[in-house]
Amino acid sequence: MKEYIIKKVLNNNVVIATSKNSDFVLVGKAIGFNAKKGSKISNDRIESMFIKQSLKKTNFDEVIENIDGKVIGICEEIISMCEKEFNVKFSEAIHVSLPDHINFAFHRIEKGIKIENPFLYEISALYPKEYRLAKKALDMINSRFEVNLPEDEIGFICMHINAAIKQRGVSDTLAYTKKIGNIMELILKLLKKKLDKDSLAYVRTVTHISFVLDRVINKKTIRNDLLDNIKEELYNEYDLAIKVAMKIEDLFSIKVPEDEIGYLALHLKRLEDL
């Protein structure tokens, strides 16, 4: 059975260990409890691992040197929890970006700097499963460190999780979310409506826009058999939908087909009737 030699204990459930000239971050229940440098860990106690394969100094080495091991440890627990939920291996970048972000959040709280996330509602609508896990992660952090990071942090953690799943940068997830927010602003402006961002109608609209984008980007648009009737009976909403489609095209450099514009018109009518 393969064995690992502990180099550093991060917390009761996370250790850094070595085996055959490679370093590993190992996660397992009570794997670090009463453990010391040089102790051996058998493979059957490991629930998940992150392999640091490079022999050169990496960003993760800098994280280990400059961030409290307990912060790194809980982040590794969160990553492990999320990987199990999604049944996918996250991108390596999150092992650096998440502890770096949480560490920075602690510093802001200590200095009394208010943490705000202007896209919290869009994030929760776009990424519901990631958001649920991010909320659980925040509860873990606040409980373990006896701090009170605000609800806005759920959105930031959620973006890190989503970026790791999609194998892209957190900035890409943020950029996408901002664009969705811009589209929603235009919709409410065109309809001359105010809508609570935590309302079902707002969430439903954000989700619909995201589905439209996904279909168009992946060239899986669906036929709209009601298109002619929509143009004739909902001509005002269809005209507004064209404006929304133009905004989408401008932001995402894509072409929204008429069938999708028709579905947008139906959705705008639904919002208008609220």
Results as ranks from 00 to 15, higher is better:
Lys2Leu: 12
Glu3Leu: 13
Glu3Ala: 09
Ile5Phe: 15
Lys7Gly: 00
Lys7Ala: 12
Asn12Met: 04
Ala17Asn: 02
Asp23Val: 15
Phe33Thr: 08
Ala35Trp: 03
Ser39Lys: 00
Lys40Ile: 11
Ile46Tyr: 03
Ser48Glu: 12
Met49Trp: 07
Ile51Lys: 13
Lys57Ser: 08
Asp61Glu: 00
Asn66Val: 11
Gly73Tyr: 03
Cys75Val: 13
Glu76Trp: 06
Lys84Pro: 01
Val88Met: 14
Val88Thr: 14
His95Lys: 08
Pro99Met: 04
His101Met: 05
His101Glu: 06
His101Pro: 01
Ile102His: 07
His107Glu: 14
Glu110Ala: 12
Ile115Glu: 04
Glu116Cys: 05
Asn117Arg: 14
Pro118Val: 11
Phe119His: 15
Glu122Tyr: 07
Pro128Ser: 07
Pro128Lys: 09
Lys129Ile: 04
Glu130Arg: 11
Tyr131Ile: 06
Ala134Thr: 04
Lys136Leu: 10
Lys136Ile: 15
Leu138Trp: 06
Leu138Asn: 01
Met140Glu: 05
Asn142Asp: 10
Glu146Arg: 09
Asn148Ile: 11
Asn148Asp: 15
Leu149His: 02
Leu149Thr: 11
Leu149Met: 12
Glu151Asn: 13
Asp152Ile: 05
Ile154Ser: 05
Met159Cys: 05
His160Asn: 14
Gly169Gln: 14
Thr173Val: 13
Thr173Ile: 15
Thr173Lys: 13
Ile180Asn: 04
Gly181Trp: 01
Met184Asn: 05
Lys193Arg: 13
Lys194Gly: 10
Asp198Trp: 07
Ala201Gln: 13
Arg204Glu: 07
Thr205Gln: 05
Ile209Gly: 00
Ser210Trp: 05
Phe211Arg: 15
Phe211Tyr: 14
Lys220Thr: 04
Asp228Glu: 13
Asn229Met: 13
Asn229Tyr: 14
Glu233Gly: 02
Ile248Val: 06
Phe252Ile: 00
Ile254Pro: 01
Lys255His: 15
Ile261Ala: 02
Leu268Tyr: 03
Leu268Phe: 00
Arg270Phe: 06
Glu272Met: 09
Asp273Glu: 10
